[in-house]
Design a protein around this nucleic acid. Structure first.
Length: 538
DNA sequence: AAGCAAACCAACCGCAGCGTC
DNA sequence: GGACGCTGCGGTTGGTTTGCT
């Protein structure tokens, strides 16, 4: 990956990147897992029984009286082997039991640390590469010292590793009087955020002491601009994309060409889908929908804004528990306009995993046979629907294929719906008929926009509270929202009008491109607010 | 070669969150 | 509701290596 290098970035990179990346001495000495030598003489350490015991009262090191004192200090190869063998056989967790059962005279806390930082098989040893360094910079710019959070997005890296790198870097920069963050990142930020009082603050000079955990950049763009889309989705789901909800949209200078660029590689999507990616997207099914409704929120056809991503209610992304519900998700297909996504590759079908078949299988099916889905979800009679939610099976048991089709239209897109959880099907717009074959419990919309679906839903279920996040045109980032259905209109319209005010005919095309992906938008209704049930979301 | 500071790294420590009893 | 244990996180410390003078 090309990484923009700030001037003199050589000094930015960890010495291990620039210099001969010798084996980390501790890794080689203490971590046989990485193939390092075991030539360290531990003979003396085996006799360290007079080390002070772990008497901290936080549980890890709790030991009974009479037990031998818990050892501290560097781990020996034998200890590593015991720990590794035990964890491989029994799994992680319950570290005090690991300590006992593995015959390790170490506190459980130490065992956990040793495993997670050195013995885990998925650890990536060696110096940070340029890509990792840049990610660290961006993440730190956004989150501050959230090492664990960063490590979660740097596969194979530990929080300790990142922390050590950063602290070293910080010292070096402080000593040299250099800004913490590279100039080009600062420039990006300054172009997108006007909330900094000074250049120094933006550069991070004011947070040298790391006393503030406040996000330096109250914008999500930097994150979105750099991370893969799916990673960004994760960030959003975790609330890690800084919210700009406190910013008054009316006061925020809008750059119509402001990039919330999405770097969607559908190839990467496909490859990553295996583990975490909930969607695929197809670009080639939008023709009929693209000209469908004439509904454009007051925009001209030329002002059509690119579609955003689709988020599915109940997806781990938004249920706040990514680890629990992935395999229970329904396959979801979001249809996107090719004209607007032509630069995103060959496949823009966004699919969500379903209860049957592997994610890849589901994805492939949808990729290879878009027509089948299309015929199901977008028929001539419902072409132009902004959101169609269809579930093939019992919606309550959530066993069926779940689809959301989002034909192109302007502005924010809502792919998410509480539809499948609704007790009754309904048509979202006056005059709409139920889609043939739609089973009870399916909600579908023939309204020209997803927001209309929400409106309609609100009329049917006025007590519904919609919670979720969306990437606001006006606010430059993820906005957390929890609004009554009736308030949705106001929120949505306000955002849209701000967007419109900054789009003119001349800049339309440019804006359209640069704002691609701006409309990541999701709402999630609160279960129970209107007698909904969603067994899949548990 | 010796001394020193910087860099690097592993490990420790205290604390907070969470679940269980 | 409080005590307790487990877990994870972030700050800090201390040992070793590296590079410079």
């Amino acid at each position: 990956m090309m990484v923009k290098m700030e001037e003199g970035l050589a000094s930015e990179l960890p010495p291990t990147v620039l210099a001969d990346p010798k084996e980390h001495y501790y890794s080689s000495l203490h971590s046989p897992v990485d193939g390092g030598g075991d030539d360290y003489d531990y003979d003396d350490e085996e006799e360290d029984d007079d080390e002070e015991t772990d008497d901290e009262g936080d549980g890890y090191g709790a030991r009974r009286s009479g037990a031998p004192p818990l050892k501290k200090g560097p781990w020996t190869p034998d200890e590593d082997k015991r720990l590794r063998d035990y964890v491989r056989a029994h799994g992680e967790g319950n570290w005090n039991q690991v300590r006992i059962n593995a015959g390790l005279n170490r506190c459980g806390k130490s065992c956990r640390l040793r495993w997670s930082n050195h013995l885990r098989p998925d650890l990536k040893k060696g110096p940070f590469d340029d890509d990792e360094v840049e990610k660290i910079l961006r993440m730190h710019m956004t989150w501050g010292n959230k090492w664990a959070k960063m490590a979660a997005l740097l596969p194979g890296r530990t929080d300790n590793e990142i922390k050590n790198y950063w602290n070293t870097r910080l010292k070096r920069h402080q000593r040299a009087g250099l800004p913490i963050y590279p100039e080009y990142l600062v420039s990006q930020a300054s172009n997108q955020d006007m909330n900094f009082e000074t250049h120094e603050e933006l550069c991070g000079v004011k947070r040298l002491n790391e006393s503030s955990q406040r996000s330096v950049l109250e914008i999500g763009d930097l994150m979105y601009d750099y991370f893969d889309h799916e990673t960004f989705i994760k960030l959003m789901s975790n609330g890690d994309v800084p919210s700009s909800s406190l910013v008054d949209p009316n006061a925020l200078p809008i750059d119509a060409v402001n990039p919330l660029k999405r770097r969607i590689s559908t190839d990467s999507i496909a490859s990553d889908y295996n583990g975490s990616l909930p969607f695929l997207q197809t670009p080639d099914e939008s023709e009929n929908a693209g000209s469908s409704t004439g509904f454009n929120y007051g925009m001209t056809e030329n002002q059509l804004a690119p579609l955003g991503a689709a988020i599915i209610s109940g997806h781990p992304i938004f249920d706040g528990n990514p680890s629990t519900s992935w395999t229970t998700q329904r396959p979801v297909k979001i249809e996107l306009p090719s004209v607007q996504y032509s630069n995103y590759g060959h496949s823009n079908a966004w699919v969500c995993d379903g209860p049957s078949g592997s994610p890849i299988e589901q994805a492939n099916t949808l990729i290879e046979s878009p027509g089948s889905l299309k015929s199901e979800s977008i028929s001539p009679q419902n072409a132009g629907l902004d959101a169609i939610v269809h579930m093939g099976d019992d919606p309550v048991r959530s066993q069926g294929i779940f689809e959301v089709s989002v034909p192109p239209f302007s502005y924010n897109q809502i792919s998410q719906s509480v539809a499948y959880a609704m007790r009754h099907s309904f048509s979202s717009a006056p005059g709409d008929d139920e889609i043939d074959g739609c089973p009870p419990g399916v909600i579908h919309s023939k309204s020209p926009s997803s927001s209309d679906a929400i409106f309609a839903e609100s009329s049917c279920y006025p007590d519904t509270i919609f919670t979720g996040k969306f990437l606001s045109w006006a606010n430059y980032g993820a906005v957390d929202a929890s609004v009554e259905a009736g308030a949705f209109n106001e929120l949505f319209s306000k955002d849209q009008s701000i967007y419109n005010s900054h789009i003119d005919g001349d800049s339309c095309e440019e804006a359209e491109q640069s704002n691609a992906g701006r409309g990541l938008f999701s709402w999630k209704s609160m279960p129970g607010a209107c007698n909904m049930s969603d067994s899949s979301n548990q």
